[in-house]
């Protein structure tokens, strides 16, 4: 790890100002940043520790929705009674992520900003080419080990998978990211790699995530997060789905549906095609399975990650059907 200086921010403004300086980075739970600094990927000159700031860890929930401070920690949000009851998918996405220890450290702001687990990205000593690290250097993954890489939203420059679980749930429920005054839909906050995979978020220097807000909805209340992986726990998703559903009074006809995919795309992946195909339909296994195939429309594999194209629609279908069962 390269040497850096350490600065403890005393206010949000001070943090923003300090972090705007070249070479400076915000430090929250450190579970991404310290890890990547040890890998030689992050090379900050100054770390601006924001974990001692007061008031940014608040969790407020009512009928209209939830507002979660950027410094609220994953574990606390996951266990929050109102989040569990009004946004089960959010709680489930969180408790199935990482480990209990990491969730006690990791903040919601830092969580959105976590970086890809692409092994080439994480190993600069062995793999010089990585467009995400060094723009224009090439992509080591293409033609290499791609089992964990994205099949949706990829570009010729980068096929790295966005690994976060929470953001997948957030994007399904139209959450917004608060950068102080500026507010962005989560869907807009994350950028596609295109030709600039080094730029992952619509956040400007000097900006800081202060909170996220999730509108309350019937679909959010009846929601789930289904995460499939090789290992039962402590692993990123092979494919996951955040799904929320609202039925008409008959309890069978779908009025509202939210579907987002994780583990398969370069950013949290909302799949409106599936939503549109099923809205107004009666929930039947066959219909759901057929519509779920739309989740991977346009998917492109790189060999070893082909299974994700098969897997993702099945995860979506199962999640939808599971919510139907609990009617």
């Amino acid at each position: 790890m390269r040497d850096f200086s350490y600065l403890r921010a005393t206010s949000t403004d001070a943090a923003r100002q300090a972090a705007a300086l070249p070479g400076a980075m915000l430090l929250a739970g450190g579970t991404t940043l310290i890890d990547l600094a040890k890998c030689g990927v992050a090379e900050p000159d100054t770390l601006v520790d924001i974990t001692h700031l007061k008031g940014l860890d608040r969790i407020a929930v009512d009928e209209r929705g939830a507002t979660i401070g950027a410094l609220a920690r994953m574990g606390h949000v996951a266990d929050h009674a109102d989040i569990k009851s009004r946004f089960p998918a959010i709680s489930e996405a969180l408790w199935q992520a990482a480990s209990a220890q990491i969730r006690n450290m990791a903040t919601i702001g830092g969580n959105l900003m976590q970086r890809t687990r692409c092994p080439y990205f994480r190993d600069p000593a062995n793999f010089a080419a990585c467009n995400k690290r060094v723009s224009g250097s090439g992509c080591s993954a293409i033609g290499g080990v791609t089992r964990g890489h994205a099949v949706l939203g990829t570009s010729e420059a980068c096929i790295a998978m966005y690994p976060g679980d929470l953001a997948t749930a957030l994007v399904a429920f139209d959450a917004t990211v608060h950068l102080g005054e500026r507010k962005l839909l989560v869907d807009d906050f994350f950028l596609l790699p295109g030709t600039t995979p080094d730029r992952e978020h619509a956040i400007e220097p000097g900006e800081m995530i202060t909170a996220i807000a999730i509108p309350g909805s019937a679909a959010a209340r009846r929601s789930t997060y289904l995460k499939i992986r090789d290992r039962q726990s402590y692993e990123f998703a092979a494919a996951s789905a955040a799904v929320g559903i609202e039925f008409e009074a008959d309890g069978r006809t779908i009025r509202d549906l939210r579907v987002a995919l994780g583990g398969v795309a370069t950013k949290p992946w909302r799949v409106r095609a599936v939503e549109d195909a099923l809205k107004g339909k009666v929930l039947e296994p066959e219909t759901v399975r057929a519509a779920s195939l739309l989740a991977v429309e346009g998917a492109v594999d790189h060999g070893a990650n082909h299974y994700k194209i098969e897997l993702a629609p099945r995860v979506v279908a199962r999640a939808i059907l599971k919510l139907g069962e609990t009617a």
Binding site: Y6, R8, L27, G29, G30, T31, I34, D35, L47, D49, T51, G75, A100, Q101, I102, N104, M105
Partner: peptide, 18 residues
């Protein structure tokens, strides 16, 4: 794993200064 303020965390990803 150690406890900080009573919660379990990972000492390898925590700066001592933090």
């Amino acid at each position: 794993t150690v406890h900080i303020d009573g919660e379990r965390v990972l000492a390898c990803l925590t700066l001592a200064a933090q």
